[in-house]
């Protein structure tokens, strides 16, 4: 295996194209494990961390034009320690705190998390619920696509050879709030049995709230449930029982419609169906609590 050092994004993209069985290397916390297990046998890895400082923004977090931009080399620790995170995006912190352990968070990047395209990863559902986009660089230039469209299947991303994620772009919206919850077998280092990320935007004019809700590890890719988003938006502000009714309806919906695979290592399908409703409830309540403040 060759270890290649690109000096620019352009060179990194060219190296990917010139070396058929090559991979971008970010934190390596997925890549090196897949290499060790023989799942992949790279002829070359291209270390994005060695790019010259003209590409410094790859390692930066900035708020620009009402959007939070997270560079492709930003690690989970860097995000957790970032002092200026808009409170609307608190779910990013919820997810980071559940992520691996300290030493893993010191290496793992958010972009690598998306590119790995695992069905239950921390940032798949979180970033989908926040309506985030990723910026993709290739020889033709730069384009933005939604986080949802990164996913092609379980563990498969939709990037073309030569494509490099350069940043993740998240809208910061007034009167909005977010929360992320996951269930796992142990409280320490484990992947999610299932996870749920929720964002709500309160409209002062109509007094209505609109939602984006995304679940991980219930399907081959993290998915939204428009029916659930619709149900939540029908919660009546001044009738407390309405919250209970809608959450009960949502729980029934999951029991009836979810169809998680029976071969999951982490939980039986029924467990996941029940957990989905419970996590939705947790996320909804946390969101309401945060929105008030």
């Amino acid at each position: 295996m060759k270890y290649l050092i690109p000096h620019s994004l352009k060179e990194a993209s060219e190296l990917l194209i010139d070396n058929e069985n090559s991979f971008i290397l970010a934190g390596g916390t997925d890549l090196l494990i897949e290499k060790r297990s023989g799942k992949i046998t790279p002829d070359a890895v291209i270390d994005l961390k060695r790019i010259n400082h003209e590409e410094l923004y790859l390692s930066e977090i900035v708020v620009k034009n009402g959007k939070l931009e997270i560079g492709a080399l930003v690690t989970v620790t860097q995000l957790l320690e970032y002092g200026n995170l808009p409170s609307e995006l608190a779910s990013l912190i919820d997810a980071g705190k559940k992520f691996g352990c300290y030493e893993i968070r010191n290496r793992a990047t958010l972009a690598g998390n998306l590119a790995h395209a695992s069905p239950g990863s921390e940032y798949g559902s979180t970033l989908i619920s926040l309506d985030a986009e990723v910026e993709i660089f290739n020889s033709k230039g730069v384009k933005n696509i939604s986080v949802e469209s990164i996913y092609a299947g379980a563990g498969r991303n939709a990037l073309k050879r030569g494509d490099i994620i350069t940043k993740i772009i998240i809208p910061v919206i007034e009167n909005s709030g977010s929360a992320y919850f996951r269930a796992s077998r142990v409280d320490g280092m484990d992947l999610a049995i299932i996870n749920c990320a929720l964002r709500g935007i309160y409209d002062r004019n109509t007094s209505k709230t609109s939602y984006r809700v995304s679940f991980g590890a219930v399907a081959p890719v993290p998915i939204r449930f428009p029916q659930i988003e619709e149900m939540l938006s029908n919660i009546e502000n001044n009738r407390p029982e309405s919250v209970k009714e809608v959450l009960a309806e949502a729980k029934q919906f999951f029991l009836k419609t979810l169809n998680p695979r029976a071969t999951s290592l982490r939980a039986a399908p029924l467990t996941k169906k029940i957990l989905a409703g419970n996590l939705l409830e947790d996320a909804y309540k946390k969101f309401k609590e945060r929105l008030k403040k």
């Binding site: 270890y3 390596g28 916390t29 300290y102």
Partner: peptide, 19 residues
């Protein structure tokens, strides 16, 4: 396998020395 790299603790089994 943990070691400290430039002040930051990491897992040396999943880092290439070349990095």
């Amino acid at each position: 396998c943990s070691v400290i790299v430039d002040g930051i603790p990491v897992r040396s089994c999943i880092i290439l020395a070349a990095e």
